[in-house]
């Protein structure tokens, strides 16, 4: 039998081949067969999860609640130092010097990365801004978010911090960060589904020692990860509760 592995569609395209190489490494390390299938978007991913077609997933924190509480997934590992954080930025020549000087009716460039978008929205809230009082331009990636600002199509943009910091020099010099989140506990994680339950111990062992395996080291580099840290269930439950406080809206 072959297990189905997928990566949350918000992964950086730079690491596409890295994930396929990781899949090959994992099959050797575990002596089990995995089939890696990339999804085009979150809708496709959620349908696959809903139909119980996924056994192993590199999951966005936004999906953790559904995976753990509805689908019986268990967390395995997270990337070391890999908390997700968001940046709110404007064009460098903009008059706006703080989130509080943004006004209802503005256009905001963002992506469909659910956790980054959520953190961005939380940082816009002090200006009285919500989905109802802004127009959102959904872009396919963070370079396009930057371009929407540079072309003047949007007044502000929501970025994943790493993506913002990796924008090319010429683009970055024309942008200015207004706020950076420092939340520190929202992170992606690898999670195993019910059919992989018997392999959880082995998965944790091979993943947590991957960085000391000479082959494993190179594979990690291809993902931009220095090593995997074990995640226990309570850490994930805590993150899920925290995400629920951020998505909660009384009406």
């Amino acid at each position: 039998m072959s297990y189905k592995f997928t990566v949350s569609p918000d992964f950086s395209p730079d690491y596409l081949s890295g994930w396929f190489i990781f899949n090959t490494w994992l099959q050797r390390a575990l002596g089990r067969s995995f089939h890696l299938e990339m999804m085009d978007n979150f809708q496709q991913l959620h349908q696959a999860i809903d139909e119980d077609r996924i056994d192993l997933i590199y999951a966005n924190p936004y999906d953790a609640s559904m995976l753990v509480r509805d689908k019986g997934f268990v967390p395995l590992v997270k990337p070391r130092g890999g908390a997700d954080e968001a940046v709110i930025a404007v064009r460098a020549d903009s008059d706006v010097d703080a989130v509080e000087s943004l006004f209802p009716g503005i256009k905001v460039a963002s992506t469909d990365d659910p956790d980054v978008h959520l953190m961005g929205m939380i940082m816009l809230e002090p200006a009285g801004l919500s989905h109802d009082s802004m127009e959102i331009k959904q872009c396919d990636n963070y370079v396009l978010v930057a371009k929407a600002l540079l072309k003047g199509e949007c007044e502000t943009g929501i970025f994943l911090d790493k993506a913002f910091d990796e924008l090319s020099r010429p683009i970055q010099s024309q942008l200015r960060a207004l706020v950076r989140s420092e939340i520190q506990v929202i992170h992606h994680s690898l999670m195993a589904g019910p059919r992989l339950q018997a392999e959880v111990g082995n998965l944790r062992r091979v993943l947590s020692t991957m960085e000391i395996d000479p082959k494993g080291q190179g594979v990690l580099e291809g993902l931009g990860v220095s090593g995997w840290d074990l995640v226990d269930e309570e850490e994930t439950e805590f993150m899920i509760d925290l995400m629920e406080t951020l998505t909660y809206s009384p009406d």
Partner: peptide, 27 residues
């Protein structure tokens, strides 16, 4: 602060509470 408090439900039981505060809208 703008505070959101959630019950920590584990195996169907409330085992504690988490409060997450964020910057409020001044208005």
């Amino acid at each position: 602060v703008k505070a959101t408090v959630i019950p920590n439900i584990r195996k169907g039981r409330i085992v504690g509470y988490t409060s997450v505060r964020r910057k409020p809208d001044r208005r």
